[in-house]
Nucleic acid binder design. Structure first.
Lengths: 114, 114, 114, 114
DNA sequence: GTGGTCTAGACCACC
DNA sequence: GTGGTCTAGACCACA
């Protein structure tokens, strides 16, 4: 796997995991790869995966069963989409509107609206 | 001044300066605040402002007269707008479209298009 | 069965077993469930139950008859109560008093004393 | 500094920090030691301190000023006490009552209530 | 086998 | 100087 500069690897992996949950590759209650497994798969240190999993656990997207592994939470998919939507509407969109206005671009043309 | 979490402060200040130039608050050949002045005004380390100014100088948006201060370049406004426009169309827009699609939002409603 | 976050599962099960002995559900010389049986009942790996039983055997609370199963020791109930009492007075109580003091709670009200 | 077995060092340090805030040694808006400083002071790896600070930041007890250091949050003291109180009443107390009942101890005598 | 913690040491961006 | 990320490698408790 290739990683972007300037964004922590563990967050990029986190995004990747979320994508897989959203697109249905990993479903609620599925077990996801162990930290070691996933680490070698992605060519990354297990500690880095650990960090990803901690991060996702804090957001209630995955859960740990002790001694067994990490599992996708119930409603993880809905949670992710809700979070992304909220972030988009509250943070990205205002910035976007400001920029479009400043650049004098007609937003309606950007998306083929009439 | 309040700063965003995940973007370097010196870049956020850079944006702010560009805004002021674009909206006509600061015009071509105007002297802009000294590093120290601006630093205390924003409650930020002067080194951070220094970095901002270096960054803007590299983009030919401001210029340094030694012992005097920094000045807005001629055509700075046009340069900024052109750069922003290019960046918006080539980088931000595709990402934006992808996200809107994924979230199932109707882009036309975002901007009050019919 | 639900388990607490920061306490090993095998110890939580151990507590549960002790409770059953103390409240008379399981009496001296009774046979307790097999490792496998109890494991599936609690939705837990048999190894975990094994560990619980070893732990209890070390404290002479249960005994193993090879090929037959585990049995509640004679005087198990008294032993448990004595142990708990000692632990409570020597370890838990001082810690408890410290905490109550720090939080500024009136201990008398906690237990409906006058 | 000496550390207890069976409880992660980074949490023990976290407790220590909270203690210092509660007893007024460190006040709101104070800068706390840098990860390196505190690490060497406690004879612990800086990463471990980092972990402590992340943990406390997640609980809004400390905050980071980028490039400067970590600072005690406003109301950190009140927050800590509220958290401890809540944990005591909701988790520790029920367990305590159960144990006292089971052991047949008179709770009123424990605290010199009448 | 699993996760969790810790160390030592490195490199980086940022202030 | 500050924090933040990452690696490699170790050790441990737990299931």
């Amino acid at each position: 796997m290739e990683f972007t500069e300037h964004k922590p690897i563990y967050l990029q992996i986190s995004d990747k995991v979320c994508d897989r949950i959203v697109n249905g590759e990993w479903n609620a209650d599925d077990r996801i790869p162990s930290v070691r497994e996933y680490g070698t798969e992605l060519g990354v240190n297990p500690n880095t995966i650990m960090r990803t999993y901690e991060h996702l656990q804090n957001k209630d997207i995955i859960q740990n069963k002790r001694g067994v592994g990490y599992f996708v939470s119930t409603n993880a998919k809905e949670k992710i989409i809700a979070m992304q939507r909220e972030q988009f509407l509250n943070e990205d969109l205002p910035e976007l509107k400001r920029k479009i206005l400043q650049l004098g671009i007609d937003p309606c043309k950007l998306f083929d609206c009439k």
